[in-house]
Computed example of a mutant assay.
Amino acid sequence: MEKRLTRTEMLYSLGFLFMLVFAVGAFFYGVKIGSEKTEARLAEPAKQLGGSTKGNADAYQQQDLVSFYHTVYSPYREFQNEWIATFRKLSAGQLTNAASALNELSDAAEQAYKEAERASVPANSPLLASAQLQLLKSLRMFDEAASRGAGSVKDAPGAELVKALTTDAYYVDGVKYALSGQQDYYAAMLKWSASVNPDIPGEYEAPGGLSLADWKKLPLTVKNKVAADRLNARRSLAAFYPQDLASRVDEFVHSGQASAMKMRTVDAVIDLLLKTEAVRAGDFGSSKDELYSKELLPQLPFFFPEQE
């Protein structure tokens, strides 16, 4: 016959089970609390580190912009100007040995690449790091395009050779990367200007139909950024700088030509200026004293050529 538990034994067993459940629950609760405290202790330094990094992120110092100009942007621009000058001579039939000229362009691209690659860009200036990468990729593409062109020149007339080169996939990518790198550099200048003057936005993306009335209210560093954006969007590789284009837009507006032609948007003016080749390198310097005497600019050589 099955033996029944006495009342005392039953109470003892239930008490033991209750204590066991309580002990197990207390154990897991302690583990949970301990884990949470450990996570909080580990997260606090990470949070402080993250806050410190965030505080220093996107820090664009004037000396970094100047250093980038001399070590990356200027070597690239020297090559670009040589490329454009060579293409003009090819188009005009002024080169007796096109293959040799293209090989020289290839060598120039390689030299500019080596110089720009050696430049040190601050880790907390991501736009400058991106600009350097884009310009280096551009130089690689131009190097390859020139080499390919030199190897397939044969007896093609200069104009036909230029057309073939400008439709080459390497050239197309070279232009894309070059203008993207330039755009990043001017975006970095805008970041710098915002750190100096809080009334200037650190970022600005102009609407497609930016009116001339709104354009006139923008600070110069914003206008330059818009000009760099528009050149990139149009894949327009030119010897002039974005500030040259911005100044020509301002001159066009101030002279009354935009009003006389019933133009209302910045894009309409830019399209006209580019189509008619009405922008030249140095246009900004010619109008700087008259239009921008009180504007904030970083101390870069192409903004202050008189100091070179």
Rank of each mutant, 00 (worst) to 15 (best):
R7Q: 14
L14C: 01
F18A: 15
F18C: 14
M19Y: 06
V24I: 10
G25M: 10
V31L: 11
A43C: 01
E44M: 09
Q48W: 12
G51F: 11
S52K: 07
N56D: 02
A59D: 13
L65Q: 01
Y76L: 14
E82F: 03
A85Q: 07
A85L: 08
L102W: 04
A108C: 01
E110L: 01
Y113G: 06
A116F: 11
E117L: 13
N124Y: 02
Q132W: 00
Q134P: 09
K137H: 06
M141V: 01
E144V: 11
A145M: 08
G149N: 00
G149L: 03
K154L: 15
D155H: 08
A156W: 11
A159Q: 12
L165W: 04
D173F: 11
G174C: 00
Q183D: 15
G202M: 05
P207Y: 05
K216I: 01
P219D: 05
T221H: 09
T221W: 08
K223P: 02
R230Q: 14
A233T: 07
Q243N: 07
A246M: 04
A246E: 11
E251S: 07
H254T: 05
M261T: 09
D271F: 00
S287A: 06
E290Q: 12
F302W: 13
F302D: 14
F304L: 01
E306M: 08
